[in-house]
Simulated scan of single mutants.
Amino acid sequence: MHRNLIALLIWVVLFSACTKTHQKNSACGTQVCSDIFTAVEVHFTDNTGKSIKVSNFTVFDVTSNKQLYPGLPTANLLVGYYTVASDSNIKDYSTDGDVIKVSGTDSATGQTKTVNFKISGGCNCHVAKISGPDSVAFD
């Protein structure tokens, strides 16, 4: 009798240890993501390849037809580099990717350049550039 009771007790302990811990499920489901903060940037240069600050820097989501505000430009840290998307605004982008129009104006010449990106976010762990240039050179 003691053997059956001990076996039953061991059985209960083993199976209670195997119960799942419940994670809060979001609309995106449960997923494991790294803590690395990700950003997509673009680099603006003049016609000689020198990094420049631009004015009127805009990020517009053509897919959802809305202006986006991905954060402060990194021009204060690295001249000419601007944030197009970051994990701070991952929900502004769809999981499969959105067409994003990025514009900036060369303050010295007044010339404006516009380029397209495809950026994914949404239910992904991090924002990602699907397509688009690394840098934009003014004429």
Rank of each mutant, 00 (worst) to 15 (best):
P133R: 11
I52S: 01
N47H: 15
K101E: 13
G132C: 10
N124W: 03
N76R: 11
S94A: 14
T105A: 06
D35N: 15
L8T: 11
G97C: 09
T19Y: 12
R3G: 02
K24M: 10
C28K: 11
F60A: 07
I100G: 00
Y81V: 11
S88M: 08
N47F: 12
A128F: 03
C33E: 10
V59D: 01
C28L: 11
K24I: 14
V84Y: 00
I52M: 04
I52F: 01
V99K: 09
S103G: 10
D61L: 05
S34K: 06
T109W: 02
F117A: 06
F37W: 09
V12Y: 03
F60Y: 15
T30L: 09
P133N: 09
T63S: 14
D139N: 15
Y93V: 03
W11E: 05
A137N: 12
Y82S: 02
F57Q: 04
I130L: 13
V32H: 15
V79M: 05
T19M: 13
S131R: 09
N25E: 15
Y69I: 04
D61N: 15
D134L: 09
Q23M: 10
S135W: 02
H22Q: 12
K129G: 00
V42H: 01
N25V: 14
L5Q: 11
G29S: 11
G122Y: 00
T63Y: 07
V99M: 08
H126L: 03
L9V: 13
